[in-house]
Simulated scan of single mutants.
Amino acid sequence: MNTQSWQVKATLLLVSSLTIMSMITISASLPDMTRSFTHIPNSEGLVKLSLSFPGLFIALSAIVAGIIIDRTGRLKLLGIALVLYAIGGTSGYWLKDLYGILAGRALLGISVGISMTIVTTLVADYYQGKSRQQFAGLQIAVMSLAGILFITLGGFLADIGWRVPFLLYFFSLLILPAAYLHLKEPKREREAS
């Protein structure tokens, strides 16, 4: 596999963009979302929590993901994480219950923690020295641009309805085929007995 190919780099960058997307995409929906759940006690606080809730689960799941991916491999778990991302992320569109939406946001955070850890590990597997530093710089730039794109799209879609920006989380399913086509499981070095 040629790790310098644009397909490999683009796929890693697309998966990386999911991290920033998980946090900001629905920010424009919060005012209307708050009005929809006024009948729930402390709805304003809970709706605000829905924006930051994934961050807690990213932190918790990333710790565990690092251990699991060394045992099970990277790509199998990446595929699962991308599917869970779509399920958890779009839950705000389908679910009518605020607590269900919060559970979906937690699932979104878990999937981001896993995918983020896998991408970081794959970058370390694929690139060394200067090429790793160059890729890290590119990764930061692309994530910043993705943040601008997703917050703009989220704002545009929130004008249609507060639930509509949640559909952007289906983006992870568009990345799934590229992940299996262009990323390869690194060979593991076996310990000498």
Rank of each mutant, 00 (worst) to 15 (best):
V47P: 04
L12C: 03
L84N: 05
L181A: 05
A86D: 06
L75T: 09
S17N: 10
T25S: 14
G88H: 05
L108R: 04
R163L: 03
I148A: 15
G92Y: 08
P31N: 10
I24N: 07
Y93T: 11
G147F: 06
L145T: 01
G100E: 05
L14Y: 00
V119P: 02
L122F: 07
L14S: 06
G104M: 04
R188A: 12
Y169A: 07
T25H: 06
K48P: 06
G154D: 08
Y93P: 04
L181F: 07
I40L: 12
F37K: 05
L174R: 01
N2Y: 02
G137V: 11
V47A: 02
F171Q: 11
L183I: 01
L167G: 06
G92L: 11
L51V: 15
M23T: 05
L167K: 01
A141G: 05
L12Y: 01
R71L: 15
L145N: 04
S43Y: 12
L168P: 00
Y99F: 13
L49S: 02
P31M: 07
S144H: 08
T38N: 13
H39L: 13
V47T: 09
T72A: 14
I24E: 07
L49A: 13
A86T: 06
Y169N: 13
A158S: 14
Q133K: 09
L138S: 12
G109I: 11
G45I: 11
G79P: 01
I87R: 00
T34K: 07
M143F: 06
I118T: 08
R71T: 15
T117Y: 11
F171M: 14
S131V: 14
S43N: 10
G55W: 04
A158N: 03
R132Y: 10
V64G: 05
I40M: 14
A103Y: 06
A179R: 00
I114A: 03
Y180W: 12
G100F: 11
L122W: 01
G92C: 11
G55A: 15
L12P: 00
I175R: 01
A106S: 06
L60N: 10
M116V: 12
K9R: 12
T11M: 00
V142M: 08
I114Y: 09
S131R: 10
A146N: 06
G100I: 03
D97F: 05
